[in-house]
Amino acid sequence: MIAFPNAKINIGLNITNKRNDGFHDLETVFYPVKIKDALEVVESSEMDFETSGIEIPGNPDQNLCLQAYNMLRKDFDLPNINIHLHKNIPIGAGLGGGSADAAFFIKLIDNKFDLKLTNERMEAYCRKLGADCAFFIQNKPVFANGKGDEFEDIEIDLSAYHLVLVMPQVHVSTAEAYLGVKAQTPKHSLKELIKLPLTAWESKIVNDFEPHILKNHPKIAALKKELKSAGALFSLMSGSGASVYGIFEEEVDLSFLEKDNLVFTDI
């Protein structure tokens, strides 16, 4: 059985509070995009986890898909399986690729073994794996707050526009991202700003990670300028970076960026 986990972008991101548990409260809009991994599960005599595509750093035994399966096995009598993950969503890009893999894996296991899990229960499993993981269960645009795992439906449709995402050869760690940010209550909630015409977003909607990350990583700042110069109505870094996306009225040729970056068009 195969699933195709997709990425997300953040349309705005405000860090609103530093919590006592070490996490931060935030508000953002999660919007699903068409950059996808591929995830296959088959029953097997032994547990096995294989990957292809983009190399995944770290210990494979700690992959979120395996963590999800071990969690489900505590509650259900599940057999050994072979998991193959083909990685296409850039890693360390602020696109939620690992969280998407885990959430789609839980949906896939629910379907394959007829566990009859509700969305709410699958989201509860996901919240144990990552702050944005639960978003990918229903996988539709939402206003997110809390740690990024509390959702409200919103009306937003960008299908009439051309979305482009560029991933530079830059690594931004989560620690670096949060080190330079100051939690504060925004003057206007993103839940209201997102209702403005898209042409007004550039002057109103921000990503609180951007100021210090763009200062520390000129390549990311340069990409934002390139996208604006190419005609983007709105451009922003997704999540804690390092990817940057642009929203265009018409299809645009960005082949000049492909030499030093991964460029995804029509996302």
Rank of each mutant, 00 (worst) to 15 (best):
G241M: 03
G146D: 02
V206K: 15
M1H: 12
V244G: 01
N261I: 10
P5D: 00
N10D: 01
V244E: 01
G130V: 08
S44L: 01
S45I: 10
D266H: 15
I89W: 01
V41Y: 00
E120K: 15
E249G: 00
L262K: 08
F113I: 08
L179C: 05
I35V: 13
I56K: 06
E120Y: 08
N207P: 04
A230V: 06
G130T: 13
D110A: 05
M1L: 07
N145H: 14
F4E: 14
D157H: 05
E55H: 10
L227F: 15
I54R: 00
D37G: 05
H188G: 00
L108A: 07
N88A: 05
G97I: 06
K187Q: 07
N261G: 11
K116E: 15
P5W: 10
K228D: 07
D266K: 15
I35S: 03
G148W: 05
K225T: 12
L179A: 14
A221V: 03
I35K: 00
A222C: 11
A93P: 10
G239V: 09
L190K: 06
Q169E: 10
L95V: 10
F104N: 05
L108C: 03
G94S: 02
H86A: 09
E155D: 12
A232F: 08
A100N: 04
G130S: 15
E210Q: 15
A134G: 06
S229Q: 14
M122D: 07
Y31P: 07
N20T: 15
N88T: 10
K112Q: 12
A131P: 03
F136H: 04
C126V: 10
A68C: 08
F23D: 02
I213E: 00
K112G: 05
H171F: 14
F136Y: 10
M47D: 15
D149R: 09
P218T: 09
